[in-house]
């Protein structure tokens, strides 16, 4: 298991943001972590990534205890969010150099892998371009490549495709499948319910609890819904 979460809880004063959640995610799995705005997804994700200490409960991510070994967790995961992932005022190669360096890769390794990565995602010609000059879809491809550059066991994607057009979204999901095929576990949040259908399994969080967790196909059967949007709406309200 790459993620193993047991009764994890986070309280802020008398408000329980994450309320005794328990689940696990396997190697190479694409796991969708869904929920309405304010359901507690971000708080939970911050704990999984070793950025926030749980109030109670336990969790292991990439083999490390999220409360006791947060630094080891951070070293062994990748993270990308729509809100922040790259430095706009750095060039494409500089962003790769910076993040790979932070993860402890040496200079030689980095330069060799930079070209391979850029060729694969079709951005070789943009190596010296400032990130802020790239279209949003390209930035996202690059951000994802940067997030998995150090070959983590798992990558967390927090609303990676917000505001991206359908073509760029489909291409992005191909990259996710490619990574999963290589054995990287993908943990993703999204507000696009059609994207939930790309996941192997999804959970839906409501008011700090995981209300359901299953494959999209079985959830649709269970709620007699023709798509995940209907499942979501039945649960979230």
């Amino acid at each position: 298991m790459i993620i193993k979460i047991d009764n994890l809880t986070k309280c802020f004063g008398d408000f329980t943001a994450v309320d005794h959640i328990t689940f696990s995610v396997g190697k190479g799995e694409i796991f969708g972590f869904l929920g309405a705005n304010g359901a507690g997804k971000t708080t939970a994700m911050r704990m999984f990534c070793g950025l926030s200490k749980p109030t109670s409960g336990e969790g292991r991510v990439a083999g490390y205890d999220i409360a006791k070994q947060p630094e080891m967790v951070k070293k062994n995961i990748g993270y990308m969010s729509q809100k922040f992932s790259l430095y706009e005022d750095l060039k494409v190669w500089e962003n790769i150099r910076l993040f790979a360096g932070i993860y402890g890769l040496d200079g030689k390794q980095i330069s060799r892998k930079t070209d391979i990565t850029l060729k694969r995602i079709g951005l070789m010609n943009e190596k010296n371009t400032l990130v802020k000059e790239l279209p949003l879809g390209w930035k996202q491809k690059l951000a994802f490549s940067v997030a998995i550059f150090h070959e983590p066991k798992i990558v967390f994607l927090d609303e990676p495709t917000g505001g991206v057009d359908p073509i760029a979204r489909r291409q992005f999901w191909e990259m996710i499948y490619e990574a999963a095929e290589k054995g990287i576990t993908v943990f993703v949040t999204t507000h696009y319910m059609d994207e939930a259908e790309y996941c192997n399994r999804v959970s839906i969080m409501v008011d700090g609890r995981i209300k359901v967790l299953d494959t999209p196909g079985r959830l649709k059967d269970r709620f007699h819904a023709k798509n995940m949007d209907e499942v979501f709406r039945q649960l979230a309200r």
């Binding site: 729509q82 505001g163 507000h191 979501f232 709406r233 979230a236």
Partner: peptide
Amino acid sequence: EPTTGVDPVSR
């Protein structure tokens, strides 16, 4: 783009 980043129920 009034609903970018907004959950499906709010959308």
